[in-house]
Design a protein around this nucleic acid. Structure first.
Lengths: 153, 153
DNA sequence: GCAATCAGTTGCATTTTGCTACCAATCAGG
DNA sequence: CCTGATTGGTAGCAAAATGCAACTGATTGC
């Protein structure tokens, strides 16, 4: 699909806000879990179904939508199975979003002592904490940032 | 509310995965937009209603849920208005998630040349790109990381 | 060929969402 | 005090999304 094709027929919740548009594309209950599993090696319909436990018809619909939206690519399988779903560049680029959610969940959605899965690098070590920074590398927060509306000079 | 109270009565989609738990807490269509607006200064019911355009009954429900889940705090207003909703520490900590979504949206959800709002620091400059790294600061991707399941040694 | 498995689709019940109207409390003016 | 406007919701109902179970059609293994 062409880049432009992703933008036809979409009706955005809040046109000029990138957060709203991202949520329009992957902001439902299941899409990011599908992306998470694709990042962790899931490829076939059955892979996704087993890992997420999502209903088959909804999974079918979500895979189709994610392909339409340029986040997954549906490819004929090299052998055997009918096709596989692989992340596009845009899909892989959601890594930062998934990591941010994972780290927030680790900090705020588990009782003390409760176990959870961990994302590790090639050395088996957990990642560094994602920290929003300005262009010089200093940490920024909601108190030191502002949203400026779009304008066409 | 106590820390533990957030975990009572929750039925998690995928207990051991922090991504799934985060989505259980803020993964619906509206919660993160409410959080986004709270980060940008919204405080009252009306603020949120006008900025998001969400239906009043749903907004009412989402605000209640976000308070229950420890992301917003409902405080009596200093004067006049009945109460205000302010982010808790956990809510403010969602900043990295919102920034990651904003940056992804900027890269992938706008046609070339299309305008959008921008998040800037105190100097008016856009933030640096969030980049997942290992503990030494080297960039990691989905190809160089793995999810390891929970285990109790 | 025959059974099993995979990748979906279809139909229907349940749940969630959204719209509109309504209501209660405050507030400002006179 | 009375009136009207604004804020912060709730109630009822229609529409949409979701989930479950059963079914289909192609492929694979034996």
């Amino acid at each position: 699909m062409t880049h432009a094709a992703r933008f036809d027929g979409m009706d955005w919740t809040d046109a000029p806000c990138p957060v709203a548009r991202t949520l329009d594309l992957v902001g439902d209950r299941w899409s990011l879990l599908i992306v998470r599993d694709a990042m962790d090696g899931a490829r076939s319909f059955g892979d996704f179904q087993h890992r997420t436990g999502i209903a088959r018809n909804i999974l079918s619909d979500r895979l189709r939508r994610l392909v339409e939206r340029g986040i997954l690519d549906r490819q004929p399988a090299p052998s055997g199975r009918r096709q596989v779903y692989v992340l596009t560049e845009a899909g892989r680029d959601l890594f930062a979003v998934v990591v941010a959610m994972r780290q927030w969940g680790e900090r705020h959605a588990f009782a003390p002592g409760e176990v959870h899965s961990v994302l590790v690098d090639d050395d088996g070590l957990p990642l560094a904490e994602l920290r929003p920074t300005d262009s010089h590398g200093s940490t920024v927060t909601t108190d030191t940032t502002t949203v400026v509306p779009p304008h066409d000079d």
